[in-house]
Design a protein around this nucleic acid. Structure first.
Lengths: 66, 66
DNA sequence: TCGTTTTGTCAAGTATATTTTACAAATTTC
DNA sequence: GAAATTTGTAAAATATACTTGACAAAACGA
């Protein structure tokens, strides 16, 4: 399932996928795959993404997949 | 860093590591390693743990590792 | 319309999360 | 205090998160 909350939060910061990837020290493909969904990132990466986007885990990653 | 919040939440439910592991469909060693810390579980497993323990991601996995 | 940036996606390789098996120490229960 | 349960931990194997490189389609501004 697509992670639209994350995509929206990234847009709100005006970050490209590559900029967010650089901040989080991962590849652009990893960010793309997470936004696309059907992907299972590690909690540490989720935390890095949240901090880069000024969001919490619950705001970006809760309730996506039931 | 140890995840004491998770250990406390598990104790509050009176689950052994093995019982929680069974509910989450992972091995007991995985649960043990997460509580022990210096471990980086996937977000889907974190969500499964949270639901088993009636907690949210922010309550169990936020602010553990800075 | 052209050039630039952004994004989707794929294939092959590497790093690491998770499993399985196993044993001992610690804790609980009777 | 013995037996049963729980927990810590380790080594080897497997599954999968993540990387690198690459190309094309889409989006966007000049």
């Amino acid at each position: 399932m697509k992670n639209l909350k994350m995509k929206a939060a990234r847009a709100a910061k005006d970050f490209s996928q590559e900029e967010l990837a650089d901040i989080c020290n991962v590849s652009r493909q990893t960010i793309s795959a997470i936004e696309k969904g059907d992907y299972n990132p590690t909690i540490n990466l989720c935390i890095a993404i949240c901090k880069a986007l000024d969001k919490t885990l619950d705001e970006l990653f809760w309730d996506e997949e039931q």
